[in-house]
């Protein structure tokens, strides 16, 4: 790796000040598992002048129940989240999502904030030495549109004229399904509004803004949640499709459904049609199947990725059934 300045921040304020001082040419490092890969491969035209370590900020990894829910510090590791008794019981989808991310070692290193703020995996974008200066890097075109797009968006692009790279986070859909909020050094942003694609950007964070925590509201009585992931390998792999759902029932009937797919579109995607379809119905094979179909009804696959559509459809169905009274075994894992 090319060298850079390094700072151990002692507070979020100090880290934000340092970020501001470098005006977009510095990066925050926590687990580092995404950032260091990008730097080693020199995938971006610009290389960070400085890294600001926030692992030295005390208390940022705390997980604590609050009056109205649960607060998870930015530095809480994926391993810690996946094994946390309260999260396993009440925010099951998030525990499952964190537990299916990457590999055991990476889960010991990677943090919740890093998993939300990670960059896209498009193979043109990630090619070493900035080989494809694509739209996302301010270049002239999207190489994936006409090229090999077998792992790209089935719901269209976002940047002008393309960028069909999918958002790869496993925890993001869980957070959105559970109605979570991302707390930053400046504001609170609903998890569903946190992701955004523009040139060289995957979140709404400003250059000197830092995620400090995520907050989950206490689930309404009768709520169950689940997460499922389809990947080519069982471990150390990014999702082809993942899905999280949080379903609230009164008796057997669904009163509220929140379903979120990820890795199928440029940002995590709420399956609004599927959510509406579930309202008032029981969680059974027929309803779940119809919801799966509704979730992908408006899919517009590219030349190479139509195969992802039935996977997304099936994953919605299975995730819903996993929220039911007698969940089936997770066949995807």
């Amino acid at each position: 790796m090319k060298n850079f300045e390094h700072f151990n921040a002692r507070s979020i304020d100090e880290a934000a000040t340092l970020l501001g001082r470098y005006g977009g040419n510095a990066a925050v490092i926590a687990g580092g598992t995404d950032l260091l890969g990008k730097m080693k491969d020199r995938i971006l035209p610009a290389y960070p002048e400085a890294l600001i370590n926030i692992k030295t900020v005390p208390g940022l990894d705390a997980i604590a129940e609050t009056d109205d829910g649960l607060s998870i510090g930015a530095l809480a590791t994926l391993a810690g989240i996946s094994a946390h008794p309260v999260i396993l019981e009440k925010y099951t989808a998030l525990a499952q999502a964190a537990g299916r991310t990457a590999s055991p070692q990476l889960r010991n290193m990677g943090t919740i904030a890093g998993n939300l703020c990670q960059d896209i995996r498009c193979w043109y974008y990630r090619a070493a030495q900035n080989r494809f200066s694509c739209l996302r890097k301010g270049g002239g075109r999207c190489y994936a549109l006409k090229g090999d797009n077998r792992f790209h968006s089935i719901f269209g692009g976002s940047v002008k004229g393309g960028c069909v790279a999918v958002h790869p986070s496993d925890t993001a859909p869980a957070l959105i399904a559970l109605g979570g909020t991302v707390i930053t050094s400046r504001r609170a942003v609903k998890a569903s509004d946190f992701f955004k694609v523009s040139v060289n950007r995957t979140t709404v964070l400003e250059a000197d803004e830092i995620v400090t925590a995520v907050h989950l509201p206490a689930p309404a009585p009768g709520t169950r949640s689940a997460f499922m992931k389809f990947a080519l390998r069982q471990s150390i792999d990014f999702p082809i499709v993942n899905c999280a759902a949080a379903i609230t029932c009164e008796g057997d009937a669904v009163t509220r459904a929140r379903i979120c797919l990820n890795a199928v579109s440029v940002v995590p995607r709420r399956a609004a049609a599927a959510e509406q379809l579930m309202a008032g119905r029981n969680i059974d094979e027929t309803a779940a199947d119809a919801a799966g179909a509704a979730a992908v009804a408006d899919a517009e696959p590219l030349d190479g990725n139509a195969w992802m559509v039935p996977i997304a459809r099936t994953l919605v169905k299975r995730t819903l059934l996993a929220c039911g009274p007698d969940p089936a075994e997770d066949e995807s894992s």
């Binding site: 580092g32 070692q105 010991n108």
Partner: peptide, 21 residues
């Protein structure tokens, strides 16, 4: 960070030494 061959134990937990500064 994709293979585990550089794993060391840090404070009791296995981690990937190639992806830690």
């Amino acid at each position: 960070g994709a293979c585990g061959s550089c794993t060391v134990i840090m404070d009791g937990k296995p981690v990937l030494s190639c992806m830690i500064l």
